[in-house]
């Protein structure tokens, strides 16, 4: 079959070449059209919904029947009487902690690169990257099983060894930010390390040999060859993390929220859900989402400009 198709046909027919081409263009356009419509429908049409931020939205009404609200909802957002200050504090703190913890996968990748046995290295990589492919619900379930105050394994073990007090790591507001950072390192560091491993694999072996000739030990090879070698990868991931500073994810913080820690774990994405869908304050939640989207796009553009200046190459 394939050989028959691959055999070259004798030249294109000269007659009607243009009309044939036009017909082919129309046919191709028609074939692509449904998929283009799908993308427009699910990604571009929702942008029109930003108009809800400027009216008093009520479900079931036509847009023309809703009251024009002007900038009312944006004014409320920044008025200081809204929850905005708390939400932005939590969002920024958790994002900054996440950026600070970007050192963990770099360290892990360097340690794995020191492993000489290929099988052991592979084992460590697989073990460390599995949690990245598990849903946040499952991560929550696992941490709940271990750390819950009602029958969690940690408390059973403490009770067994005679500890009187119940420890509640998931319901303690003072350590909530630290716990969430630790949990996201547990979930993501292994997979990020694999990305750095690929960068390390791309480093020219001759650089290591040259360093060895100069009398460099393992530590100095890491400092002077490995780290400069993975810096570009780190830089890209760092810029992406900065661009995503306001959208640090709905799922993680939503599943770990409870009345004890909500003041520390309410971030933009969870707050928009609670205000918009649970409390039906559609317009206010849309205004907040719009604010978040615009800042994110601005940050992304800025990150890209920085990347072009520093590396002479854009991130995307």
């Amino acid at each position: 079959m394939l050989t028959k198709i691959m055999k070259k046909a004798p030249g294109p027919p000269a007659l009607g070449r243009w009309s044939g081409r036009r017909a082919r263009q129309i046919k191709l356009t028609l074939l692509v059209l449904p998929f283009v419509c799908l993308v427009l429908l699910f990604h571009y049409v929702p942008l029109l919904g930003w108009v809800y931020a400027f009216v008093d939205y009520a479900p079931g009404l036509a847009l023309s029947q809703m009251n024009f609200a002007g900038l009312k909802y944006f004014e409320y957002l920044f008025s200081g009487i809204s929850d905005f200050p708390i939400v932005i504090r939590n969002t920024l703190m958790l994002s900054l902690l996440k950026i600070a913890s970007m050192a963990a996968p770099v360290l892990l990748a360097i340690l794995i690169s020191q492993v000489r046995s290929a099988r052991y290295g592979k084992f460590i990589q697989t073990a460390s990257s599995i949690p990245n492919f598990i849903s946040w619900v499952l991560i929550y379930a696992i941490f709940f099983i271990f750390f819950s105050s009602e029958g969690g394994m940690l408390n059973r073990a403490l009770a067994f060894f005679g500890g009187g007090e119940t420890v509640n790591l998931l319901g303690n507001e003072d350590i909530a930010w630290g716990m969430q950072t630790a949990i996201s390192i547990w979930k993501q560091a292994g997979w990020d390390a694999i990305i750095y491993m690929a960068a390390i694999a791309g480093i020219d072996q001759a650089l290591y040999d040259a360093a060895a000739v100069d009398g460099a030990g393992e530590l100095r090879k890491v400092m002077h060859v490995t780290i400069p070698g993975i810096l570009p990868t780190f830089f890209v991931l760092f810029l992406m993390a900065v661009a995503n500073i306001l959208s640090n994810g709905f799922e993680q913080y939503y599943v770990f929220q409870n009345p004890m820690v909500i003041d520390r774990l309410e971030v933009f994405d969870t707050y928009i859900y609670r205000m918009g869908i649970i409390n039906s304050q559609y317009s206010y939640a849309t205004a907040m989402g719009m604010f978040k989207s615009i800042i994110s796009i601005a940050l992304l553009t800025a990150a890209n400009t920085v990347s072009k200046k520093v590396r002479g190459e854009s991130i995307f």
Partner: peptide, 17 residues
Amino acid sequence: IVATMYFTSGLIPWYVL
């Protein structure tokens, strides 16, 4: 298509749609 990786309309407009 690629642009859709870099912006989002936010939860509420998506939900209403």
